[in-house]
Simulated scan of single mutants.
Amino acid sequence: MKKIIIAISCVCCISAIAQTSPPPSFSRNSITTNPPKINSRKGTLIEKKTNVLAKFKSLNIQKIITKDLTDNSSETVLGVMYEYETYDGIFKKTLTIEKQELSKLILSLQMLEQKENDKNNQEAKYKFVTMSNIEIGGIYHKEQNLWINYIKFPSGNYNSSLNEFSKEELKELIRILKNAEQEL
């Protein structure tokens, strides 16, 4: 009988302690948060300057500098602008890639270039997706012994933009992005 009372007392104590202990805390420093982007600030005058660095297929590779004129802070990002035309209108959209992400993209494209030079007889697909949802990848078709590289932009209401390019054009894209990285 004493054993049962002791066991019940232990269970009650443990459940009481568990209910009163605070939830586990985490350090705010362990979470990486970026400060608000200048372009998204409210109640201030923002200046945006765009310089075209290169053209790749139907894309304009741009250096975009945004500046908060009230405190003179500025940010520089890579812009990738695509344009298409329909019967009723012309559509332009620019998506951005930050310098840290650009380094990872270049490294990924260099790895893709190595994969294309490997003598592998298996079907393979590769992709890299940026924070702004630009998808860049490559597909190897075994039966045709052919690599197809692509850049796919997030589709809006009326469009789906896909640019395909060859192995040789991949080298050109890597060169353009390396030069752009130096400009940022």
Rank of each mutant, 00 (worst) to 15 (best):
L69Y: 00
P24W: 06
D88I: 03
P35C: 01
I90Q: 07
G156H: 10
T76K: 06
Y158G: 13
D88G: 07
S108R: 12
W147R: 10
Q100E: 14
K42H: 08
E143D: 14
I46M: 00
E98F: 11
K37P: 03
Y140E: 10
I61K: 03
N157I: 15
E143N: 14
L109M: 10
Y82R: 12
K93Y: 05
E164N: 11
F153L: 14
W147Y: 13
T96H: 06
S30Q: 08
V77D: 09
T50S: 04
L107A: 15
S27D: 10
R41F: 02
S160H: 12
I31K: 01
F165I: 01
Y84M: 06
I148L: 13
L45E: 09
G138P: 06
K119W: 08
K55R: 06
K49Y: 02
N149F: 11
P24I: 09
P36D: 01
V52H: 00
S108Y: 15
N159K: 12
K37F: 04
L107E: 14
W147M: 09
Q110R: 14
Q100L: 13
K48N: 03
I31A: 04
I97M: 02
Q62S: 09
V80Y: 04
G43I: 03
E123H: 14
L102F: 08
D71L: 00
A124L: 15
S40K: 06
N157V: 12
Y84R: 07
K49I: 04
K49F: 02
G156A: 12
Y87C: 01
N133Y: 13
G89W: 00
V77C: 03
E83F: 12
S132T: 15
N157A: 15
Q62F: 01
T70G: 01
K99W: 05
Y158H: 14
S27K: 05
E123W: 12
S58Y: 07
S25R: 07
L53H: 02
I90G: 00
P154D: 14
R28C: 03
Y126P: 05
L162T: 13
F153R: 13
Q122I: 14
N29Q: 05
S132W: 06
K119L: 15
K142Y: 13
N121P: 07
I65K: 13
I64P: 05
Y158V: 14
D68T: 02
E101W: 08
L45K: 08
S27Q: 05
H141Y: 13
N60C: 05
S73G: 00
V77Q: 07
Q62K: 15
S27T: 01
E164Y: 06
S40P: 01
S108P: 08
E135Y: 06
T94Q: 04
I31D: 00
G43Q: 06
K92R: 07
D68L: 02
V129L: 11
L59F: 07
K152S: 14
K99M: 05
P24C: 02
M81N: 15
T66S: 12
N133I: 08
T130Q: 09
K57A: 09
V52W: 01
Y87D: 07
G43W: 02
P35K: 04
